[in-house]
Design a protein around this nucleic acid. Sequence first.
DNA 1: CCAAAAGTGTTCTATGTACACCCATGC
DNA 2: GCATGGGTGTACATAGAACACTTTTGG
Lengths: 222, 222
Amino acid sequence: MSGALMITLSDLEVRVVVFTLQNNQLQVLLHPTGSTDQWMLPGCGLLESDNLESAAADCIEGLTGLKEVFLEQLYTYGDPGRNPQGRVVSVVYFALLAAGSLSLERIGQARAAWQPVCDLPALAWDHSEILAYALRRLRYKLEYSAVGFELLPEVFTLSELQHTYEQILGEQLDKRNFRRRILQAGIIEPMTERRSGDGRPAQLYRYRADAVAEVKARRLFP
Amino acid sequence: MSGALMITLSDLEVRVVVFTLQNNQLQVLLHPTGSTDQWMLPGCGLLESDNLESAAADCIEGLTGLKEVFLEQLYTYGDPGRNPQGRVVSVVYFALLAAGSLSLERIGQARAAWQPVCDLPALAWDHSEILAYALRRLRYKLEYSAVGFELLPEVFTLSELQHTYEQILGEQLDKRNFRRRILQAGIIEPMTERRSGDGRPAQLYRYRADAVAEVKARRLFP
DNA sequence: CCAAAAGTGTTCTATGTACACCCATGC
DNA sequence: GCATGGGTGTACATAGAACACTTTTGG
């Protein structure tokens, strides 16, 4: 530390950006602000005994009832003036919920609601900026890690997986290349069951817990 | 926000992990703790008017006299118990200084010192963990962005650039492939001068300010 | 038998990797 | 003239991209 340690009291909070897939659309969990028809990212304060990540996890559990979610620190926002009510430092976490794992009543009790990412309501303060960054991070992570599985139920078909990728990346993917590469990667395994539907029944797969889910980035230089 | 907003007062500080190259070695700026022979990452508190990033920039300017440095938020550490003197939340930034741009006297005045990353002294609290993460981030960023130039002076030779990469990545690179790819990428341009030295004089290059310095990550799936 | 979604291979192109010798200068 | 670091090109292997038809089920 250079010179004296200066300690400043700040309002410190944890906020969460929670994504899930519903109706084949990427959705984010938002909370009404109350006063206007604006919405905000859910969050909470920090108890003495909490670490930052478990505060975020508790917040998500309170809203959804889910304990095991993909959770990762996103960024810390602390500009003075980002909140007109005074200086607030927000440590923001980023979470993914598996489709179909939600207890919707609890969300209703908290008055929080899922909103489609492609058609968002107005957000308070700098929360639009935070959400845009979370979305960039989600897309980016999808490129080099197997984070897409976090949005799917435990058991899924290859078409469902591909639609998830297309939904998040916002582009169409080639079915044959997608299947070949994901099977080559060895990160999913077929189950004995198939799922009947509209056409030919689809093979069900599940994510392999022992999979190595990260891929080396392409280097700019050798 | 779910239910009432809980506000907790915490000690909030900004810390910086500052890297530079000296004697062809990656170095990090550390500060003695005073009591034991342990060292720590430099840092400062947060003034009312500061945003987090400018607090980090001011801290680095105070130690080195440099205003324009590569600076990026690394992570926020806030576990209770990470500092035995009480709950401290540290927003940690990550900085790169160009080799040869340092005013060494100021560092001496603040009793901070450069320490080689390959042979570090003992660090206080969780600062080893923070430094290890910063190093991972540096290596990772090097893979997909042109962050390596931030550690070099404005003008450099291709061999110097290659040595920088080798130093950070910890592996040898092929000279011909390195040169071909970095020239193809179009992110550096030759200058009219050459630099005389021990053998044949080397062409000098500089980084092109208009360069696109990021490369698309390799996807896990198509 | 028809609609609807599942499943399947090959060719071509681009990228990455491995590798060894000559060149220009200072002493 | 020799020691020192600078500079150059080619052949091979791997990975990615483009592309269309057959299969299995339910109604």
